[in-house]
Amino acid sequence: MVPLENYLALSAIVFALGVYGVLARRNAVMILMSVELMLNAVNINFVAFAAYLDPGRIVGAIFAVFIITVAAAEVGLALAIVIRLFRNRATANVDEAATMKW
């Protein structure tokens, strides 16, 4: 069996990548993808914990399924907003969407 630490390390790396993406990227879609990366790191954590620490119960797995669902809805919503902004202004860059102070 692969030790639990490996999963956690993987998850931490993926999470950190996601955080970096959110902070470094200026394109709304890229930010969203980075957030997805973070959420997947969370999923890895949950599934790994569920498999290793909580045998017989599947709370972690259920949590992961719900996170996937919510993330999908979130992306759907965010894309809808990006599209609306794009139609009004023709940009998906967060920097250019600066009628207000950022």
């Binding site: 399924v65 996937i68 669902t69 999908a72 809805a73 992306v75 759907g76």
Partner: peptide, 8 residues
């Protein structure tokens, strides 16, 4: 996207 995830 929404429907596909609901099938999960």
């Amino acid at each position: 996207l929404l429907f596909d995830v609901e099938t999960v």
